[in-house]
């Protein structure tokens, strides 16, 4: 096997340089990433499974888990539909202001979640633009479940669209035109041609979106006003428990959230290897 030039250069570095670099990296990762995460699980299980089950059987904890799952379940499908629509619109059509639109989709990445929460209060709070009208219909948004869902949606808007736009830009629309010229309907073209082509990036975007939706703290914290058992999501509940000096319960709940994140991370790296595998295949055969 011939050596890749970049690799052979690196392997020619003196042994001690290699060890220092590897050691520093591993040291940082252990100290700053693995250790804190391990501590969460350690603290959760320290007093045995009992604290764990008690913490989880708490009504407020279960309500928090329920709300987080609800917000995620509403947010992720919406985000998927929006992401597909936005990616389709910006890559298959041309219209004035297109690149500006693509930049605006990224806005939630740039804005601090706290500001996002405040914006929602200005719009939907009792004294906000729409809040009064909605209130007269008996719908309370801020300090209630709809606000939590809205905040989660706001901060996750870019995830799916961001993954799809570059992929669809690169693919162009020739395959779709070919399908249509062969007599396929619009729906057949979408399900048999477009969707299989963007399946992995779409799934990747959905996973990232899920992780963020479950973990969001800032924006949700502003609009929920932390009513336990009602508007607290898992991250808010953890924060509340910790502030009550109920560390074991906080860590038990935290370990659940962390496990979900680790699962997402594993799924993400599996997907990444699939995508890499695919693009390598296509490069080799170009």
């Amino acid at each position: 096997m011939s050596r890749v030039s970049g690799l052979s250069d690196a392997s020619r570095d003196p042994k001690w340089v290699q060890w220092i670099l590897i050691g520093t990296t591993v040291g940082f990762v252990t100290l700053l990433l693995i250790l804190p995460l391990g501590v969460i699980f350690w603290e959760a299980f320290r007093k045995g499974l009992k604290t764990f089950t008690i913490a989880l059987s708490d009504r407020n904890a279960r309500s928090a888990i329920g709300l987080t799952l609800l917000a995620t379940a509403i947010c992720v499908p919406l985000n998927m539909v929006f992401g597909l629509a936005a990616a389709w619109a910006t890559t298959k059509y041309s219209f004035p202001g297109k690149s500006l639109l693509i930049s605006i989709i990224d806005l939630p990445f740039a804005i601090s979640p706290v500001i996002a929460g405040l914006m929602l209060i200005l719009l939907y709070g009792i004294h906000g633009w729409f809040g009064g009208v909605l209130q007269s219909f008996g719908l309370q948004v801020i300090f209630a479940v709809p606000g939590v869902v809205l905040a989660t949606i706001f901060v996750t808007v870019p995830f799916v669209a961001r993954e799809l736009i570059p992929v669809m830009q690169e693919q162009g629309s020739e395959q779709e035109w070919a399908a249509i010229s062969l007599g396929a309907s619009a729906w057949q073209t979408f399900t048999k041609v477009t969707l299989p082509n963007i399946f992995f990036p779409l799934l990747y975007g959905v996973l990232l979106c899920t992780a963020r939706a479950m973990g969001e703290f800032g924006a949700v914290s502003v609009v929920s006003s932390n009513i336990r058992g009602l508007t607290n999501t898992v991250p808010l509940q953890i924060d509340a428990l910790y502030n009550d000096y109920n560390a074991p319960a906080a860590f038990a709940l935290a370990s659940i959230l962390a496990s979900l994140s680790i699962l997402t991370l594993l799924a993400k790296s599996w997907l990444e290897s699939r995508i890499e595998h695919r693009s390598k295949e296509s490069e080799e055969n170009q």
Binding site: E174, Q175, W177, A178, A179, I180, S181, L182, G183, A184, S185, K192, V193, P196, N197, S282
Partner: peptide
């Protein structure tokens, strides 16, 4: 396009990968 029943061949093949 589909009503015209034309066979169209693209420069870059546009095969379904």
């Amino acid at each position: 396009v589909s009503e015209r029943q034309v066979g169209f061949v693209f420069q870059h093949y546009a095969l379904f990968k």
